[in-house]
Design a protein around this nucleic acid. Structure first.
Length: 861
RNA sequence: GCUCACGUGGCGGAAUGGCAGACGCGUACGGCUCAGGACCGUAUGGGGAAACCCGUGGAGGUUCGACUCCUCUCGUGAGCACCA
C-alpha cells in the first residue's frame, strides 16, 4: 500500500513549529516580579481539568476541551492579555497502584512513563501551554503543600458566630478536637473489600464502587473526616454569583440538599397499663426529636418512626416487643445498602410498644422502627403524616395505621396530597395556607420550647482517608492514642519504600507494613492512612500560579495577580467534563473557602466561569469503549490529517457543550478546508514542490472581498468570546470560498485570515505567515506576536439591501431598495409590488408591518 | 418517582421573535486527468410537469409574524434516588 498523499505538508511543518515553540517559549506567562512581566496587561487565567495520566493515553475526548481553551488562550494573548494557561498531572490514584500490585513495578515509575506519553501526545496537538508551570501531584515538591493545606484545616475550626473558618486558637471550648475542620471519627464507612479501602459517599454508585464496580458494605471504622458540612450554606448561597451552567449549579444544590423545616420534640409516654405490663415503667422519660419540612402537618402525625440504628430504640422498646424489634434490627443490619434502598421493595417495620405524645394535641401515637427512615439524615426519626407523604401512606396502609388529612388541596382528594393547600383539622393553624401555617406553628412550638425552626442538609462530612499506598501521607503522628500535627518544617512527609503495595485486607493500610517508617519517635507513630485522590486537585489551580515556589504554596503577590483582579476574580475560564460536578468542583470550592477565610487567597470562589464540554461518541453513535471497538486515537487522526485538522474538526463538530459523534469523513472535510487555505498561498510546481502562489498580489481587495473580510473578523471574534467555535470555522470557510474563485488573490486579506485562523490551526498559519513575511517583507515577526484584528463596520453596511415582502406572514417576493429607505417608502414600495398587488386584490389591507432593513408584512383579508 | 438538558434534511449542525436548513459530510451530474478514494464546478428538505402546497417530535396558545416565548404531551439523554 502506498502512503496516502498529504493534501498539504503538515507532516513537515507541524513538528517544525512544535520544536520552535519548545525552544522559544512564546507561551510562557511571566509572574509579577519576573523578567518580561508587564503590569499594564490584564491577566486571563484559563484552565483545563488536568488529566489522570492513565496507561492507555489520550482519547479524542480529552483534547476537545483542551482545544477550546487553547483557542481562547491564543486569542486572548493576541488581544494583549497576560494569559495563564497551564497543564499538569493528577497522578495519584488507583490504576497505578493496582498495576504496581500486579507487576511489582513502583507506581512512581508507571506514573513517570504515563506522564511522558500524555505530554508527548499533548505536544503533538500543538497546545500552547506554559510548560514551565507543569505540576505533578505525586511530586514531593507539590504534595508538600497538599499536606500543608491539610494542616491548615487541622488547625482551624468553623466559628458559627462569624460563619468562617478561624484558627483553632480562637476556639474557647474545652475540647478543640471536637471542632477541627479535619477530625477523626468512628463512623460507618463505605468499605470496599475488593479495593481494600473505604470510599467517600460520592465515590459509591448504587452500592458499588465508582472505580471497578465492586460491592461496598457499611462498616464502622476510625477515619479522618473534613467538616465540609459547616460550609454547606455558603457552598449553596455563593453559587449564585458564578457563571456556571445552570445544570451544574442545580446538581450541587441538589447534592448539598438544603431542607428548611422544624425540629419537634415528642415526649415518650410512660408505658404503664400496656398489655398487662402494669408494673413496667420507663426509669427516665425520653424525648424524641424529629425533623420535618412540613410542621404544618403536625396534627396529621398518626405515628412516629425511628431509624433502626436510632440510639433510643433500646430504651423505649417494651418487653413484649423486645424480641421482634431485636430481630428486625438484626435483619436490617445484615442487608447491604443496595438492598435497603431498593425502592421497589415493600415497606417493612416493627412496633416498639411505646407511644409518643404529640405536643400540639397531647395525642398518643405509636412509635415504630422502620428502615425507610435513615439514621444519617435529619434526626434519624420522623413524625409520620400518612395523609400527605407518599412513603408514610404506603407504610400506614401496610400496617393499618390511622390516616388523618390535615391539608385541603385546591382540588381533588386530600388523602395522598403532598402539595401546598389550606390547613384543616388543625386547631392552632386552621384555615391558613401552608406557608403561613408553617410559620405560625413553628413560632407556637418555639414559644413552648418543644421545637424550633431548623435547616438540614443531605451533604455529609467528607471522608478523607484511604487505605492505599499511592496517595499523600497525612502529616500526623499518634502519641498515647491522640493525634498531633507534624511541624511544617518536616513537610513533605514522603511515603515509605515498599515491596508490597497490596491492601492488607483487614482495613489496615499498606503503609502499616513499613515498620521503620511508622516509628516516628519514642512513643509516637505515624498515621498510616493516605489522602484520597481528590486532595491534589483541590488546589492545583493555585499551584499553577507559582509552581516552582518552595517557600510558600503560592506567592502572595502572584496569587493576588492571577486569582484576584478587579472583576470577580479567580480562574476566568475553566473547561472540563460534567463528571466532576459534585466531586472535584465541590471539594475544591470547600478548600478554597477555608483558605479564603484564613487569609491565604483573595477570592471566596476559585472558578468564576465554568463550561462543560460534551462527550464525544464513537462513529456508531455509542459511547466510546474498548469493548465496542469504536475508540478513536488522536495519534492516528494526526498521522492521517495533521494536528491542525484534528483541532479544527474537534471544534467544527458542533457546539462545545453538546454530546456528538465522531466522523472521520468530517475530519476529511475540515482537512480539505485547511488545504484550500494552503493553496490560496502556495502552489505545487511540476516537480511536486510547494512554492508561493503567483496569483498573490499586493493589490487592494474589492468591495465584496472587504465585506467578507470584516464580516469574518466580527464573527470569529464574537464566536470565540462565546465559545461558538463551530460557527467561527464556518465563517472562515465562507471567507476562503469567496477568495478561491478569484484570479488574483490580494495579499492583505490573507494576512488577516491567517491571524484569525491561528488559534484554530496554529501550525499551518505559522508556516504560511513565515512564508508571506519572507516574500512580502516586513518585520519577519512570528504570527504569535500579532495583534488581533478589529473590524470596521463601514465595510459591512450596504448601499442596497434586500427587503422581504410578506403577505399575511408568508414570504411572497423580495425587492431591493436603498439602505436609507424610510418606513413609509418601504410600505409604499411593498404595496406597489406586483406580487403583493395580486395577492391582496379584492381584500382589505388591515395592517402593514415594516421592519427596517428586513421586511414588510402586509396583512389583508 | 424527582430534577435538568435536548428533539430541525440521508448525517453533523446553522438561524438578536422576521427569507428555516449557513458551513461541512454524503449523493448526483459535469470538468480536469493514464487513473482517482486527488482537485475544480453545478445541483441537492419533501410533494408536484408547473402554479403552488407541505415542512423544525405532537397538540394548543401569545403575535402581523414562532425552530425561537407560554401551557400540555410524547420521545431521547444525563443526574439524583425512601433526604421526611
Amino acid at each position: 500500500m502506498s502512503e496516502r498523499r498529504k493534501p498539504y505538508p503538515f507532516d513537515h511543518f507541524e513538528p517544525k513549529w512544535q520544536r520552535i515553540w519548545d525552544e522559544r517559549q512564546p507561551f510562557h506567562a511571566p509572574n509579577p516580579g519576573e523578567r518580561g512581566f508587564d503590569p499594564s496587561r490584564s491577566k486571563f487565567y484559563i484552565l483545563d481539568m488536568y488529566p489522570y495520566p492513565s496507561g492507555t493515553g489520550l482519547h479524542v475526548g480529552h483534547p476537545e476541551g483542551y482545544t477550546a481553551t487553547d483557542i481562547v488562550a491564543r486569542y486572548k494573548r493576541m488581544r494583549g492579555f497576560n494569559v495563564l494557561h497551564p497543564m499538569g498531572w493528577d497522578a495519584f490514584g488507583l490504576p497505578a497502584e493496582q498495576y504496581a500490585i500486579k507487576t511489582g513495578q513502583h507506581p512512581a515509575v508507571t506514573t513517570r512513563e504515563n506522564v511522558a506519553k500524555f505530554k508527548g501526545q499533548l505536544k503533538r496537538i500543538g497546545f500552547s501551554y506554559d510548560w514551565q508551570r507543569e505540576i505533578n501531584t505525586t511530586d514531593p515538591r507539590y504534595f508538600k503543600w497538599t499536606q500543608w493545606i491539610f494542616l491548615q484545616l487541622y488547625k482551624s475550626w468553623f466559628n458559627p458566630e462569624t460563619q468562617k473558618a478561624e484558627p483553632i486558637s480562637s476556639y474557647t471550648g474545652a475540647e478543640p478536637d471536637d471542632v477541627r475542620l479535619a477530625y477523626v471519627a468512628d463512623v460507618p464507612v463505605n468499605w470496599c473489600p475488593e479495593l481494600g479501602t473505604v470510599l467517600a459517599n460520592e465515590e459509591v454508585i448504587d452500592g458499588k464502587s465508582e472505580v471497578g464496580g465492586f460491592p461496598v458494605v457499611r462498616r464502622p471504622m476510625r477515619q479522618w473526616m473534613l467538616r465540609i458540612t459547616a460550609f454547606a450554606e455558603r457552598l449553596i448561597d455563593e453559587l449564585d454569583g458564578l457563571e456556571w451552567p445552570a445544570g451544574i449549579k442545580a446538581l450541587q444544590r441538589n447534592w448539598i440538599g438544603r431542607s428548611v423545616g422544624a425540629e419537634v420534640d415528642f415526649e415518650v409516654a410512660p408505658v404503664s397499663n400496656l398489655r398487662g405490663e402494669a408494673d413496667r415503667k420507663l426509669e427516665t422519660c425520653a424525648t424524641i426529636t424529629v425533623f420535618t419540612t412540613r410542621p404544618d402537618t403536625l396534627y396529621g402525625a398518626t405515628y412516629m418512626v425511628l431509624a433502626p440504628e436510632h440510639p433510643l430504640v433500646d430504651r423505649i422498646t417494651t418487653d413484649v416487643q423486645r424480641d421482634a424489634v431485636r430481630d428486625y434490627r438484626a435483619a436490617i443490619a445484615s442487608k447491604s445498602d443496595l438492598e435497603r434502598t431498593d425502592l421497589a421493595k415493600d415497606k417493612s417495620g416493627v412496633f416498639t410498644g411505646a407511644f409518643a405524645v404529640n405536643p400540639v394535641n397531647e395525642e398518643r401515637i405509636p412509635i415504630w422502627v422502620a428502615d425507610y427512615v435513615l439514621i444519617s439524615y435529619g434526626t434519624g426519626a420522623i413524625m409520620a403524616v400518612p395523609a400527605h407523604d407518599e412513603r408514610d401512606l404506603e407504610f400506614a396502609r401496610r400496617f393499618e395505621l390511622p390516616i388523618l388529612d390535615v391539608v385541603q388541596p385546591p382540588s381533588g382528594d386530600s388523602i395522598g396530597f403532598i402539595g401546598e393547600g389550606i390547613a384543616i383539622n388543625s386547631p392552632i393553624i386552621e384555615g391558613l395556607p401552608t406557608e403561613a401555617a408553617k410559620e405560625k406553628i413553628t413560632t407556637w412550638l418555639e414559644e413552648r420550647r418543644v421545637g424550633q425552626k431548623s435547616i438540614h442538609y443531605k451533604l455529609r462530612d467528607w471522608l478523607f482517608s484511604r487505605q492505599r499506598y499511592w496517595g499523600e501521607p497525612f502529616p500526623i503522628v499518634w502519641r498515647s492514642g491522640k493525634h498531633e500535627a507534624l511541624p511544617e518544617s518536616e513537610l513533605p512527609v514522603e511515603p515509605p519504600q515498599l515491596e508490597d503495595f497490596k491492601p492488607t485486607g483487614t482495613g489496615e493500610p499498606p503503609l502499616a507494613r513499613a515498620r521503620d517508617w511508622i516509628r516516628y519517635s519514642q512513643g509516637a507513630t505515624r498515621e498510616t492512612n493516605t489522602m484520597p485522590q481528590w486532595a491534589g486537585s483541590c488546589w492545583y489551580y493555585l499551584r499553577f500560579c507559582d509552581s516552582q515556589n518552595d517557600a510558600r504554596f503560592v506567592g502572595e503577590d502572584t496569587e493576588r495577580y492571577w486569582m484576584g483582579g478587579d472583576k470577580p476574580g479567580g480562574v476566568d475560564l475553566y473547561v472540563g467534563g460534567t463528571e466532576h460536578a459534585v466531586l472535584h468542583l465541590l471539594y475544591a470550592r470547600f478548600w478554597h473557602k477555608v483558605l479564603f477565610d484564613l487569609g491565604y487567597v483573595s477570592t471566596p470562589e476559585p472558578f468564576q466561569r465554568l463550561v462543560n464540554q460534551g462527550i464525544i461518541l464513537g462513529e456508531d453513535g455509542q459511547k466510546m469503549s474498548k469493548s465496542r471497538g469504536n475508540v478513536v486515537n488522536p495519534d492516528d487522526v494526526i498521522d492521517l490529517y495533521g494536528a491542525d485538522a484534528f483541532r479544527c474538526y474537534e471544534m467544527f463538530m458542533g457546539p462545545l457543550e453538546q454530546m456528538k459523534p465522531w466522523s472521520m469523513k468530517g475530519v476529511e472535510g475540515v482537512s480539505r478546508f485547511l488545504a484550500r487555505v494552503w493553496r490560496l498561498i502556495m502552489i505545487e510546481n511540476q516537480a511536486g514542490e510547494w512554492e508561493l502562489n503567483p496569483a498573490l498580489a499586493d493589490i487592494a481587495p474589492n468591495k465584496a472581498q472587504l465585506k467578507v473580510v470584516h464580516a469574518t473578523i466580527k464573527k470569529v471574534t464574537e464566536d470565540i468570546e462565546t465559545l461558538s467555535f463551530n460557527t467561527a470555522i464556518s465563517q472562515m470557510m465562507v471567507f476562503v470560498n469567496a477568495f478561491t474563485t478569484s484570479d488574483v488573490v490580494p495579499f492583505a486579506p490573507m494576512r488577516t485570515l491567517l491571524v484569525l485562523l491561528n488559534p484554530f490551526a496554529p501550525h499551518l498559519t505559522s508556516e504560511l505567515w513565515e512564508t508571506l513575511e519572507t516574500r512580502f517583507g516586513g518585520a519577519r515577526s512570528a504570527i504569535t506576536d500579532e495583534s488581533w484584528p478589529a473590524y470596521d463596520p463601514q465595510y459591512l453596511v450596504e448601499d442596497e439591501i434586500e427587503i422581504i415582502l410578506q403577505v399575511n406572514g408568508k414570504v411572497r417576493d423580495r425587492m431591493t431598495v436603498a439602505s436609507g429607505a424610510t418606513d413609509a417608502e418601504l410600505e409604499g414600495a411593498a404595496l406597489a409590488n406586483e406580487r403583493v398587488q395580486q395577492l391582496i386584490a379584492g381584500k382589505t389591507v388591515r395592517k402593514v408591518v415594516v421592519v427596517p432593513k428586513k421586511l414588510v408584512n402586509v396583512v389583508a383579508n
